[in-house]
Amino acid sequence: MPITARMSPDQLDAVLREALEANGQRFTEQRAAVYRVLRGTTDHPSADEVFTAVRGDITDISLATVYKALETLVSCSLAVKLTYGDGSARYDARTDDHYHSRCLVCGQVRDVPGEPHEVLPHIDAGAGFQVRGYRVEVVGLCQACA
């Protein structure tokens, strides 16, 4: 089932179940809750933010379980882990090639609109290099921090 912007919880669960089973993992309600939180936001949350959101539905879930669920989603290509030099990480359910802007003060991460091939000029990665995707981040100050 192709992933679309607006999917019902049942459709999201079906996508999750299929991806987990294809990667030798099992479907759990905790993983489903974490996936629904990620798919339901464009804010690129940290693991702590996902934990807080999921606790609204599953009160006894642990932070360790959320971390494990996020890493499982990343390993099944259902999410992307955005890591930074300071050791922090944020998660994105959009797995297509796209760019981000990140505020150096508050850490907010947002999607940059536009198609990757329209935003940047052609990059020569070297003879024989086969480009498989892009990871570009624009850093600066968001409107609130500027």
Rank of each mutant, 00 (worst) to 15 (best):
E21H: 12
A22G: 06
N23F: 15
N23G: 05
G24S: 08
Q25P: 04
Q25L: 13
R26E: 12
F27P: 03
E29D: 12
Q30M: 10
A32G: 08
A32Y: 04
A33Y: 02
Y35R: 04
Y35D: 03
R36C: 01
R36G: 03
V37S: 03
V37N: 01
R39D: 03
R39G: 00
G40Y: 00
G40E: 00
T41Q: 01
D43R: 07
D43L: 14
D43F: 09
H44L: 10
H44E: 05
S46A: 14
A47C: 06
E49F: 12
V50S: 01
T52K: 07
A53D: 09
V54Q: 02
D57W: 09
I58H: 03
D60G: 07
D60C: 05
I61V: 13
I61P: 02
S62E: 03
L63G: 04
A64V: 13
A64N: 13
A64T: 13
A64S: 14
T65F: 00
T65W: 00
T65A: 09
V66Q: 01
V66P: 03
V66C: 04
K68W: 08
L70Y: 00
E71I: 13
E71L: 13
L73P: 01
V74L: 02
S75M: 05
S75P: 00
S75R: 01
S75Y: 00
L78H: 03
V80H: 01
K81V: 07
K81Y: 05
K81W: 02
K81G: 09
L82N: 07
T83H: 03
T83P: 08
G85F: 12
D86Q: 12
S88M: 14
S88H: 12
A89L: 04
R90S: 09
Y91R: 00
Y91C: 08
D92R: 03
A93V: 11
A93S: 15
A93G: 10
T95L: 07
T95K: 05
D96N: 14
D97S: 14
H98N: 06
H98W: 11
H100P: 10
H100R: 14
H100V: 14
S101Y: 12
L104Q: 12
V105A: 12
C106M: 12
G107A: 14
G107V: 15
Q108V: 15
Q108S: 11
Q108N: 13
V109W: 00
P113L: 12
P113A: 11
G114P: 01
G114V: 09
G114A: 00
E115V: 10
E115Y: 15
H117R: 15
E118W: 09
E118Y: 07
L120F: 11
L120V: 15
L120H: 10
